[in-house]
Design a protein around this nucleic acid. Structure first.
Lengths: 219, 219
DNA sequence: AGCTTGCATAACGTATGCATTAAGACGCGA
DNA sequence: TCGCGTCTTAATGCATACGTTATGCAAGCT
């Protein structure tokens, strides 16, 4: 059972968006996209509906679908939600009474970040960082939180890629991550929340400042 | 410019779902729905994609679209997210420094709840309660939070309607609401969060217990 | 010039038809 | 009876066609 054309279109459009081949704020007619993807308008249309629901593009009749740009306000909103939901997950994780075995993945993510930093491998660090945050949410155990986080992470993916080489080396993050790990292991939900909240807040301000300073108001 | 058939289909399917005419866990072929709505399969198909993205139904090829049932676990997850995001909104609202004028709508909602309760008008109370919570989120000012809250409220709408006449008269709620109002007006974000969190927790336990006690595991 | 009106164009919304293929029925053998 | 392979059926995924209608432009009017 091969992948449906609609699913193919979703996947390809997503990767075109993330790679920047379909830049933010650009407009594209259904027909053009269909030709580009080598299929008829129908599956492309369905794909655009799905991606619109995920906030990656907007369907604007007769103007073509527009790739959503992320403004600093959007970044603020998204990070606010992600922070809050991650904090929730962290608290839940702390309450769950996980032991070292349960936290192996989390631990591995931290190790990966440390070694990536040692090698000055920013992309490796970014991958591990995303995995770390995803694992936090997994440990929280709320599938809806997970779905929201994935959607929102996709929405800010371009911005994050952009700033990856602009930001200072995120050495401070490692301490934060380790502290969250410890708090979860200790079952100390208050500390887990506090530590993680602070971590999210500082990385949010870092990122938004970076964007502001470089005049990147829409990405 | 009249409403598109796709939009009509979305609206009608939503109301069929909320009213229970399309019961939870029931399955429906595209063709049947199309006939029922008096249009071709295409707009119905698009509508199901949209509603699937909103979590109201699942598209299961060759089995028909299935109306999503809400389990107690789902209720737990959804309420957890709604609570957390409402708390965030309440904190933001408290930080925003709103005055009495800005909180008129909120105040009116509380009044409506009080008078509805006096008349034993449960549906009126439910409307005012939903408006109250929606207004809290509006005051928080995060549009993504608003979107998520709407989606999730839709998902639990049937469950809430069901329990509306099973639960005790929610007189306690009024105090809670008034306290949140006061905390926002006072700009006391910590108290706002604490009060609201407690309120959400107690209504969550009330609801889930009600469902459990009545053996309503899937709604 | 600025504004309005009418028209040509083309993008979209929707219906329809068809090839594909999954699901269930049926029959057969163990 | 149960399991397994085959076949039938029909729902779907998709391409396509077409009517509708928004949009941009040009011509005419003020």
């Amino acid at each position: 059972m091969s992948k449906s054309n609609t699913q193919t279109a979703v996947d390809e459009l997503r990767s075109l968006i993330f790679s920047g081949e379909l830049p933010a704020d650009s407009n594209h007619l259904e027909g053009e996209l269909a030709e580009r993807l080598n299929m008829s308008r129908t599956p492309v249309r369905e794909a655009t509906l799905i991606l619109a629901a995920q906030g990656l593009l907007e369907v604007r009749p007769r103007k073509g679908v527009r790739i959503c740009a992320i403004s600093t306000k959007d970044m603020h909103e998204i990070y606010e939600v992600l922070s809050e939901l991650e904090c929730l997950s962290v608290v839940n994780a702390a309450q769950a009474g996980y032991g070292q075995n349960d936290l192996q993945v989390l631990n591995a993510c931290i190790d990966d970040m440390v070694s990536a930093l040692a090698l000055d491998d920013r992309e490796g660090w970014a991958r591990a960082d995303e995995a770390f945050h995803a694992e936090l949410i997994d440990l929280g155990g709320n599938t809806r939180v997970k779905a929201i986080a994935q959607t929102f992470n996709d929405q800010v993916r371009r911005a994050r890629n952009l700033t990856l080489y602009m930001r200072p080396l995120p050495t401070k993050s490692n301490d934060d991550h380790r502290q969250v790990y410890d708090a979860i292991l200790a079952g100390d939900e208050a500390r887990a929340r506090a530590v993680h909240q602070a971590h999210r807040l500082s990385s949010r301000t870092l990122l938004t400042n970076l964007l502001e300073q470089n005049g990147l108001r829409r990405i």
